[in-house]
Amino acid sequence: MIELSVSRARSTLASLRLAVLMFLADPQWLIPSMIAPVIFGLVAFEIFRGSGPYFVVYAILGAGMMSMWGQTLYGSGWATGQDREFGTLEPTLQAPTPYLYVVLGRVIWNVLSGLIGGLIVYLVVILAYGRPPPLVDPWAFAGLFVFVVLTLAAVGVVFAAFYVYTRYAGFIQNVGEFAFYVGTGCMFPVVLLPFWTSPFSLFFPPTWALDALRYLAIPGYAGFSWGFGIDLLGAVGTTAVYLAVAGSVFQQVQRHVLESGDLQEY
């Protein structure tokens, strides 16, 4: 049993290492994770200029979230898409290690690079602002921020699984990018959107987690009326559902490949 766990951990580590090397060899992923968010952060900073110190937090959080969303949308899509394009999907699925552990290594790198992007956004915006933004409880903020990242990772794993079954991954990534930013309230509270859009927004774990994070970081923040505690519960609940869905979809993918063997066709 222990041997099995070690083997799976080794596969995830190897996959993570390869993801880092591929990122360095083909740095086009710098754009969604680092360049675009910095620009969005600076645009938001300029738009919020003169609105008050806590709006700097909005700009940093928003652009940081966009960095991680970008990495989730593009990177996690590619986490399975690359196997289809390179023709390695079926051989990888035939390996004794479950495919999920291979994808996990790639998703972990996406999360890490998204975090690095968020850090770069933070540094650039405070450079423009001239001082660090005010934070009520920096340690709790940091802890919750890591949780927000985990909710995005859960979304990333579901997307990675879903993209195996669709030829429209590129469409969802490129055309749907701003829709995700709007729908999950990256830069502004979701409550600003029309009420009927809320169910769609609440479908995504980051919406809950980000609202909780803003409650923690911005005094007087007016997000969902149920407040911080329910936001946190909602984030944990939806993340658990996403992880369960991802696990079952990946199992189905594996079964499908073993039965029909036609997933490699790109």
């Binding site: 738009i47 709006f55 830069m187 502004f188």
Partner: peptide, 11 residues
């Protein structure tokens, strides 16, 4: 929509 709501948030 994204930028309109961002401006709205900033007052």
């Amino acid at each position: 929509l994204f930028f309109a709501f961002t401006v709205q948030l900033g007052g």
